[in-house]
Amino acid sequence: MSLLDNTQLSLESAMNGSMYRQTLLANDLANADTPGFQPQDVDFQQQLADAVAGGKSPKSMQFTPTTESQSTSVDGNGVDTDVVNADIAENGLLYQTLTQVAAARNGILQSAINSTS
């Protein structure tokens, strides 16, 4: 058995996915006024769940971005700034939750390493 179990590896992968999503969302926001730009997003949780359910190791996951094009303005831009803003806030909080869970699990591992009885 390895030191880091599947849950810890999944947490790491989810953090990677969340950071990737943050990059995509930041890009959407930066391109909110670029003509013809269509926003990108990634459902990293679904992709991770699918990978784990399919028996694949959550380590070194490849996340695939999706391009959405629902609302378009006159210049062909599909970015809804309010939605992207809300997504960024949500993603930031999710990332913090992930790091706190990972830190708590690290703490458990640490106390096992440090116990001297």
């Binding site: 950071m19 930041a26 926001l29 930066a30 803003n85 806030a89 993603n91 930031g92 913090q96």
Partner: peptide, 12 residues
């Protein structure tokens, strides 16, 4: 909006 996104990323 960009500054707000930056602040969130920094927090992460």
């Amino acid at each position: 909006a960009d500054v707000t996104a930056m602040a969130t990323t920094k927090q992460m």
